[in-house]
Amino acid sequence: MLVYALNRTLTLVPTLLAASFLVFMFIHLIPGDPASILLGDAATPEEVAELSRELGLDEPLWTQYALWLANVLQGDLGTSVFFREPVLSVIASGAETSILLATMTMLWIVLFGVPIGIVSAIRQGSWVDQATSGGAMLFASVPTFWLGLYLILIFSVGLGWFPSSGFPSLADEGGASNLRYLVLPSLTLAAPNAALIIRLIRASMLDVSREDHVRTARAKGLHPARVAIKHIFRNALIAVSAAFGFTFAALVSEAVVTETVFSLPGIGRLVVQSILRRDYPVIQGVILIIVVFYMVINLLVDLAYASLDPRVSLK
């Protein structure tokens, strides 16, 4: 298992290097001199010259990349033009919101998606199945910001159950009860993803239910619900677990829209605001962090996959 994990991690390195090179090239693809782009409009010519020397802009591209990568590995992602702060600490300030939002969203996806998917598969062809399958596809067709706006309209403006925007840190006044700020955003973000999970669980369970070992399980006289959960769902989980991982990994960037609708101080909104402010060092830093996060989660998914399927771990 350990060897497998190490192997998988090593295969990630070339992709990670290539992706980081693309991120590095981002600044160079924007028309203009990288040093003045990174410093913003307010920079003096002296500052620009200073940064140019630091970045090695007169060196070949390859050396520049090496310099940049060395800095990144030491945690230096540059300085935000807008905040005048290190990019890393700007991103870190949004991390709490993003991670809590993604976690709460996953919670809804599992809570709603798994049971509905299972019922839909067990009752294949019934009206329950048709309603949930159709409903799931409908939810996957709704723009998230539209759903978010109407959830605000109904549950914040109308009923006053949940706050409509912002998110004070859990460390601030209110403590854990501040999580109520994330209820509507996480539901918004969960809707289309839960829909995909429902359809995936249904499809994989129907595939597994045709396998011979399910007949063996039924021949033992097991209750159909037990066959469905212990034998069909457990085996379908191997395929579905991958989707859980991808979904979670993509949530941080998918949250861009939701965080904007609910004015949440997360990484997603930071991306959009930085783009609108032309705060390129922050954009570059966020992309890099999200891509690394995305790949690490996908790696963890692979490892989880191996632990769910005894046939993989021993190869």
């Binding site: 011979d212 007949r215 039924r218 033992k220 006289g221 005894p310």
Partner: peptide, 23 residues
Amino acid sequence: RRRVMGERMAMIFQEPMTSLNPV
């Protein structure tokens, strides 16, 4: 019916390779 299945009456199948749950 399920009380009979697997208790007083049992069955083995043609494909031993796929008739056991792999997990």
